[in-house]
Write a protein that binds this DNA or RNA. Structure first.
Lengths: 211, 211
DNA sequence: TATATTAGACCGACAGTCTGTCGGTTAAAA
DNA sequence: TTTTAACCGACAGACTGTCGGTCTAATATA
């Protein structure tokens, strides 16, 4: 009746269960008991592998974040595309293809999940900003951007996009459209890019991908 | 042995105690029992006035936020100052003179207090952005700014400043200085202001106020 | 091949803490 | 005297993390 597995395997089983529960029910409302039931293990086993509930959350975020960065880095390294295209694709790779489901992400942004949300956000920003900063620098060298602060330009863009395109912000379709236009406009200004130089590739991206 | 008070008075006593505890110990680590002890009332009394612990948090944030907005609005309405000065002073009034203590705010930004932090942030942004947007519009009319999106310009500036000047970001003194310069630069770009037009009043502000 | 040993994985009862409820009590106004 | 708003504290229910002990499978030993 007792199944023994390699630590890594069990850990992943636990993380799988936790991820689904945290994301559907929320972190606070998921009890360690829920995870126990889902995985089919005893209390002691959970705490043998993780030192606390929050430890599970951290590991889960680490896992998600790592897989997202693989995608983003791949997009950023694709030298066949222009710098602007690479920026758009690597930033978008974080928004769209969420590692989990799709609309489930709405749950992440409920006030209850503040801890999960802020941890994911921090983790994401920490890893994406340097990536984007590199692309911006490249753009500056190529003469298509003009800013003395590539890093902080990247930071401001990422931080704001993280906020503005959160599901939590309940804006109408129209507000969202204006918001996107404004975002593009402001981004061009911050990067010191020519007016409209981002609009074109952006539209192309959106028209080729479904949503 | 039993003291009866007006509901409003008790509520404020509870909020006073909660505010100090939440801010020093953190929201999660403060138990309702702690609040009970501090105020010197019984469990039932607390739940007579507030429907849950989170309800207390919300009320507390409402109270803080309201008092902050009074200051910010006063600065924004002071027509003796230039638009740029009013922007600086109203935004700064949120950062500096925190309604609580000073360095205590560090606590607010620990991961534990994610709920409190995000609620305060959301509340703040919701109320400050429209205020700042008004000032930006005024600047556009006066010809010192140039942007087709005053509201979103304001939003981007506030959201980013909220993030960048969080105590949580542990940056060196030097990084902070470059960060501020970059922030000013980017802000000028977003507002379509002349290069350097923000730097001057900003310096003046910092030199006259101690910190 | 058969048996003993060991270490890592696992179990579940339990202590301790916390939130929110509820029936009942008291002080002060009507 | 009655009524009502404020107050009390015991208690139910839930949850997290701990701990002593158990099992399994790999390895060592005979």
């Amino acid at each position: 009746m007792r199944t023994v597995k390699e630590a890594e395997e069990r850990k992943n089983e636990i993380l799988d269960a936790a991820e689904e529960l945290f994301v559907t029910k929320g972190y606070d409302k998921t009890s360690t008991g829920d995870i126990l039931d889902k995985v089919g293990i005893a209390r002691g086993t959970l705490y043998y592998h993780f030192k606390s509930k929050e430890d599970i959350l951290d590991a889960m975020i680490e896992r998600i974040s790592a897989s997202m960065m693989v995608r983003a880095k791949a997009e950023a390294a694709n030298t066949e595309l222009s710098v602007i295209e690479r920026i758009i694709r690597s930033v978008m790779s974080l928004k769209l293809q969420s590692p989990i489901g799709d609309e489930i992400l709405q749950q992440v942004h409920k006030p209850q999940n503040a801890l999960m949300h802020s941890k994911m956000q921090k983790n994401m920003i920490d890893s994406v900003v340097p990536l984007l900063a590199g692309l911006v620098e490249e753009g500056v060298k190529q003469g298509i951007f003009d800013t003395p602060y590539p890093f902080y330009a990247a930071e401001m863009i990422i931080v704001y996009s993280e906020f503005a395109f959160d599901e939590e912000q309940d804006r109408t379709q129209e507000e969202l459209m204006t918001g996107i236009q404004a975002f593009i406009h402001n981004t061009e200004k911050i990067l010191g890019a020519e007016s409209g130089s981002l609009t074109q590739p952006m539209m192309m991206f959106f028209s080729q991908s479904d949503r």
